[in-house]
Amino acid sequence: MSAELALSIDGRDIRVAPGTTLREACQLVGTEIPTLCFNPNFTAANACRLCVVELEGARTLVPACSRAVESGMRIQTASDRVRHSRRLVLELLGSSVDLSLAPDLGELLREYGGRPERFSEAGSATVEQPVKVDNELYVRDYSRCVLCYRCVQACGVEAQNTFAIWVSGRGFEARISTEYDAPLPDSACVYCGNCIEVCPTGALMFKSEFDLRAAGTWDEGRQSTTTTICSYCGVGCSLDLVVQDNQIVRVNSPEGNDITLGNLCIKGRFGHQFVSEPKRRERSS
């Protein structure tokens, strides 16, 4: 193990192990850096630029999520320049994407004093488009997509390796898409739900949740989460069962689990429906 590296963060000196990222170093001094595209299980995508911090001597701001600490760095995490970039990133997203199911971003917008509406008039470009409901398990509402790449990473090399979706097009027209924008059932999708698990804005949603929301009965206040083990194969994946009104309404993969690494398969994610099968109730009563 090589020697620790010294750096200063907002004037506080700290030493960290080589390989530590600026985000992690900031955490060590108690400074949370806001992130959007970052997912601890994945290689940093570096796409959203919300996590930028100021590095003394650097021409541009640097992304804290991926930039490794170098000896002698002097970092500002809340300078005017940093706050300006974060505010603008949030405003640019807010002006082009429906963030109504991304409460964290809404919170950040307030915190940074962002006013996305100042970029919007009738003709301003947005990513608005019809919701895609083409199967019984997933709903894709790309009007909410901030193009954080997390779903592509989850479907691809970082986890599932199915590659049913990728980024297509380019620039503002870039979209998450199957080949030729084919419906999901015509794609390679295996419905592991790992993309939904990592989506930060509700662009990808379980159909069960979508339907409950549409019916106005989705109520996180009435939900409880219990961790148990999947009832199918012998791998032993931990499942977080989200239960509302004694019904499993969503299955998550608990964080920091050495077996699942945050992933599940279609059976673990959706195969629970037999539990609430009405037939069980009828027959046994």
Binding site: N46, A47, L92, S96, F119, L147, G171
Partner: peptide, 25 residues
């Protein structure tokens, strides 16, 4: 720049669009 932005990062993907829109106005 709007047409040539790769679309990967937010500042450029949306910024080049907002820049062009504002100039037009």
């Amino acid at each position: 720049f709007r047409e040539e932005s790769c679309g990967q990062c937010v500042p450029c993907r949306v910024g080049t669009v907002r820049q062009e829109e504002a100039l037009r106005r």
